[in-house]
């Protein structure tokens, strides 16, 4: 491909000297906090936050950096969660293999849906991804292996690599920490690679990217598949934490939630989705007893976020600090 020559022109913009100091400091501080966190709060809650942080970061790769609004990311999150739960429970896979199997399933699903969805743009793209995700939902509702309304329950936690038991919440916590933190670092790398630069170029001005000789659709498909894959990694990990895969994970409201997390935290920022996920999951946790009010509050955040707060929490911080975050 002739693309390699072109990308080098764009590369120097952000590729100067690897990760900026500020980002390094934030990542190290984050890791330090996350290491002591399970001893301060309920570990399962912390694991839930981390899974959703990875999910939102994966979604943000597509929306914030690729400029593509998918309204069907629950399909990959939930689809991977079903496959991982099935692999662990029925096939007796060890946790890491179950998670990998679920992730691979999400990648395949992302490839199938992405190849069709990128044929449309803008709001049509959003509608197409939503419709396909609803198809996945109906499949999960009707198929044999997904257990319909019950989902796949009491998934065994198993032994990591066949050696380390994950029955203990703390052991599982560090497995989840490794997976999600690793995933987020990997996404960071993708955003700051030459590939990520081309994505930004396409997002900013697609006709120009085409005229520069980029095969825009290949980039779009690849970023779609990557985003679906990491969303799947998050979903597969979540199924191991809660020992459950259910219809909630594939429902359209889950697709909406990840959009909300990204919007609230700040789309197109590195740390925004993590903040957004932490805020939303915490809110759901504390307001769970209020029932439908959670939905209403989420709707209000959506409306206010779009009208008044489009940069998101981290977006505003970044503007104050005059640094990309």
């Amino acid at each position: 491909m002739a693309m390699a020559d072109n990308t080098s022109d764009l590369a120097p913009i952000s590729q100067s000297v690897g990760m900026p100091m500020l980002h390094k400091v934030i990542f190290v501080a984050l890791l330090a906090v996350l290491t002591v966190l399970p001893f301060l709060v309920y570990p399962v809650f912390a694991m839930k936050v981390m899974c959703f942080a990875l999910f939102a970061a994966a979604f943000n790769l597509l929306l914030g950096f690729g400029g593509l609004l998918s309204f069907g990311h629950a399909a990959y999150f939930g689809g991977a969660s079903y496959v991982a739960a099935h692999a662990a429970k029925v096939w007796g896979f060890t946790p890491e293999l179950a998670v990998l199997t679920g992730t691979a399933a999400a990648a395949v699903l992302g490839l199938l849906i992405g190849a069709l969805a990128i044929r449309r743009q803008g709001i049509y793209f959003a509608m197409v991804t939503l419709a396909f995700a609803q198809m996945v939902y109906f499949f999960a509702l009707q198929a044999e292996f997904t257990g319909g309304e019950d989902g796949i329950q009491s998934v065994p936690r198993g032994d990591l690599f066949g050696l380390i038991s994950l029955q203990d919440n703390i052991a599982l916590y560090f497995f989840v920490l490794a997976v999600t933190f690793g995933g987020i670092l990997f996404l960071y790398r993708i955003v700051h690679s030459p590939f990520g630069q081309v994505l930004k170029a396409i997002r900013e001005n697609e006709p120009r990217a085409v005229s520069l000789g980029y095969q825009v659709n290949r980039y779009k498909l690849l970023v779609f598949v990557l985003s679906a894959t990491f969303a799947g990694l998050a979903g597969a990990t979540k199924s191991q934490v809660f020992q459950l895969a259910s219809l909630t994970d594939v429902h359209w409201s889950m697709s909406g939630e990840v959009v909300l997390m990204t919007l609230l935290g700040g789309m197109g920022t590195i740390f925004g989705p993590l903040v957004g996920a932490a805020v939303i999951v915490t809110m759901q946790n504390y307001l769970a007893t209020l029932g439908a009010w959670v939905t209403i509050i989420q709707g209000v955040i959506f409306v206010l976020g779009v009208l008044l707060f489009r940069e998101g929490i981290v977006g505003v911080l970044a503007r104050w600090l005059k640094r990309p975050l």
Partner: peptide, 9 residues
């Protein structure tokens, strides 16, 4: 996104 939020409300 806005009308989605309105639908939720």
């Amino acid at each position: 996104l806005l009308t989605f939020g309105v639908a939720l409300i």
